[in-house]
């Protein structure tokens, strides 16, 4: 029997599979399909201080092995999430969630994170400095000094573990991850959707109303894997590997690259049962790889 448990910055997960922020809402839609308690944790939808409608539609375009999306951080605001949606999710999910905190200033990031810190439902706070779909979204995550500043401000206001979610669209992701680590982050989540677009052949116009969006889906997997591999070698804090994971084999490969836990993203949107299937297939896949403790897979490619 394979032991699937992993320790993510002090939070013991039954398995390393976490639906990624933005692909699972606040859990309530997938709760109609299966018992969420099988999940390692849940990374809830990116949340800002105030409610946001998000970007105009169309917000989604397809591409080979993936999709380009531009939702624009639609969310009801942190207070509504803490007061209404997390208690509602509690009815379906008894473990702690990962709260994804977004902002348009370092102060907003810190304020949102602080309000999540006060919620018993939250285990880890993920600071989203890498949303490709809002103005200024990526700017925080693009430079080591701004990542340092945001992380530091959040760190001061938060007792819980802080993870910083990074973009692949940077000169050197190791430098960015190190800046987060120096500022006191307990871990990093890699990667967010990669900036991308599609153009309609007939209209000659971008398909998305926001023109550009973020690439997610299977196409992103090797990109994410490379980022996790590089960052694992550069920091001491744990890495959550996210990008294009759609099978138990992908989970193990991402862990070999250096991930302690993994996020499953767009696959949740095309296969509502994706995380359930992956978790059910994990023991056999791990056994085929000769793993007794799945946690031993982390960083195996570096040894």
């Amino acid at each position: 029997m394979v032991n699937l448990k992993v320790n993510l910055a002090g939070m013991i997960l039954d398995n390393p599979v976490i639906p990624s922020s933005g692909t699972f809402g606040y859990g309530l839609d997938h709760a109609r399909y299966y018992d969420l308690n099988i999940l390692g944790s849940i990374a809830i939808k990116g949340t800002t201080l105030n409610p946001r409608f998000g970007n105009p539609t169309p917000r989604v375009a397809e591409c080979a092995s993936g999709a380009v999306c531009s939702i624009g951080l639609q969310n009801p605001g942190v207070d509504e999430v803490v007061k209404t949606l997390l208690p509602e999710l509690k009815k379906y999910y008894r473990k702690k969630v990962i709260a994804n905190a977004c902002g348009f200033s370092a102060e907003e990031f810190a304020e949102v994170a602080a309000r999540f810190d006060a919620s018993d439902s939250v285990g880890i706070i993920e600071v989203n400095v890498s949303c490709p779909n809002v103005e200024s979204g990526l700017s925080f995550g693009s430079y080591p000094n701004t990542v340092y500043e945001v992380t530091k401000k959040v760190r001061k206001r938060v007792k819980k573990a802080v993870f910083v979610k990074l973009s692949p669209m940077v000169a050197d992701i190791k430098e960015i991850a190190c800046a987060a680590e120096e500022a006191g982050a307990d871990g990093v989540t890699l990667i967010n959707a990669a900036p991308a677009m599609r153009i309609d052949l007939k209209t000659k116009k971008p398909v998305l109303a926001n023109k550009k969006g973020g690439l997610s889906g299977k196409a992103l997997f090797p990109v994410a894997l490379r980022c996790v591999y590089d960052v694992y070698g550069a920091v001491k804090i744990p890495v959550v590997g996210v990008g294009g994971i759609s099978s138990a084999e992908d989970v193990i490969e991402m862990m070999y690259a250096g991930a302690t836990a993994v996020g499953v993203g767009a696959e949740n949107l095309v296969e509502p049962f994706a995380c359930k299937k992956i978790i059910e297939e994990l023991p056999a896949a791990a056994e085929r790889c000769g793993l007794v403790n799945l946690a031993d897979a982390t960083g195996a490619a570096h040894r």
Partner: peptide
Amino acid sequence: ERMACGFGACLACT
């Protein structure tokens, strides 16, 4: 509206 999931999770069709 253009959709991805069709069951409420992605917020593409708001």
